[in-house]
Write a protein that binds this DNA or RNA. Structure first.
Lengths: 145, 145
DNA sequence: ATAAATTAGGATAAAATTGTCCTTTATTGG
DNA sequence: CCAATAAAGGACAATTTTATCCTAATTTAT
């Protein structure tokens, strides 16, 4: 409702990779798709985007898979994933769909939207993969169903 | 980015109808499409949904068109339009796309999303068509471009 | 009554998003 | 070197959303 399906899968996949990397395990697309309940081939495309954007790291071949460095778990914030997949329309786009909507020429909802979007932006910019994987690890949150 | 295109057009159309009804003018789909810069036939479908939901009122035939009662300009809040067009997934849907995501079985982003969504909801529930049409009337805001 | 204007509604078409399948490339172990 | 495994990537298919077109129904004025 806020992100595209691709972006939803992307965040869930990245969080799962983080969780497993914390345990020192590299994971395959197949396992990821299974564990986040997402179509495997489609998830593969999204993982490609994430690796191209240096958000996670991929290794080909036997014993290959996806992983993420410990530092990156802290450094990668959700806004980076959203930007890599959905672009920055979530920040720049007008709530009512005007092509150019800004303080000089605002749509009727401009100011009210700005408030909410700023909150959203702050949330995305301050939430790391590590933080999200932690909740999962202790069984407080879920990535499926 | 938050609403569907249909919903964006719907809100813009409803605000335009409100603005014109304030002047006592009934407006045609053609004029609406023109003035909010939206595809006419598509806008017509959306206006149908709004009339079926008693949000605006339509009159067929010569000198017909769309209008809205003075009381309804205050009573109709944005959430009613969003609900009529996009349903209530904006309120109930999970930010990460889980089928069931709630306090008992939350996704990793559940709480953070809840805050933002509550703000959004409050905003939509408290913003009336009259309020939005007013900004337009005094030239502070725009529905095109 | 008739013609003109206008919404309602059905049938399609186009575009975008989501999803699948198959081949290629890289890596590892034997 | 060879076989097995896994990601990368291209081509295509299905679905959903957006958009168009045409006809029917309704109302008004003459």
């Amino acid at each position: 409702m806020m992100f595209s399906k691709a972006c939803e899968y992307g965040i869930r996949a990245a969080v799962y990779v983080t969780l497993q990397s914390l345990e020192g395990r590299r994971v395959s697309v197949g396992e990821i798709g299974e564990e986040i309940d997402a179509p495997v081939a489609f998830t593969a495309k999204i993982l490609q985007q994430l690796t191209r954007n240096n958000i996670i790291h991929s290794v080909k071949g036997l014993h290959g898979g996806f992983e993420i460095e410990r530092v990156d778990m802290d450094n990668v914030k959700l806004n980076m994933i959203v930007k890599a997949i959905d672009g920055d329309k979530i920040y720049t786009g007008c709530g009512l769909g005007l092509k150019e909507c800004n303080a000089q020429k605002p749509c009727p909802l401009h100011d009210k939207f700005l408030d909410i979007r700023t909150d959203l932006r702050n949330m995305l910019e301050s939430t790391s993969l590590f933080e999200l994987a932690n909740g999962l690890e202790v069984g407080l949150t879920y990535l499926k169903r």
